[in-house]
């Protein structure tokens, strides 16, 4: 998971055309510096109803999935980012 997430965040910066540096810290957190912003991503405690804790310039946010984490991260780095207002329903849709 950690390696996959590190690779995703690194390629996300490129996709979003944001300069920056991503690295993994000794404790497993991901640290990111991008255009004056400082970000730290850690796993949330096991007893809370979300999976990720994201601190951007000292402000703490949470996310419950990888797409949620990306949304929070990009919103923190890019003030012009407007996430899609559409939320995809889980594909519980079954073949008829």
């Amino acid at each position: 998971m950690d390696e996959a997430l590190l690779a995703l965040i690194t390629s996300s910066l490129a996709l979003w055309e944001r300069a920056g540096d991503v690295r993994r810290e000794a404790g497993g957190a991901i640290a990111l510096e991008s255009e004056g912003h400082e970000v730290r991503i850690t796993r949330a405690a096991p007893d809370v109803p979300f999976r990720w804790s994201i601190t951007i310039d000292g402000r703490a946010r949470v996310a419950s999935s990888v797409p949620g984490l990306l949304r929070v991260l990009r919103a923190g780095l890019d003030p012009d980012f407007r996430p899609s207002r559409v939320r995809i329903a889980p594909i519980g849709i079954t073949p008829s």
Partner: peptide, 22 residues
């Protein structure tokens, strides 16, 4: 426009890793 094959592949890998963990 503005797509990245590496990003899509990394995204799929990270989502699958997260689901496998959960």
């Amino acid at each position: 426009r503005g797509l990245s094959e590496a990003w899509v592949l990394n995204l799929i890998a990270a989502i699958e890793a997260e689901i496998a963990e959960i």
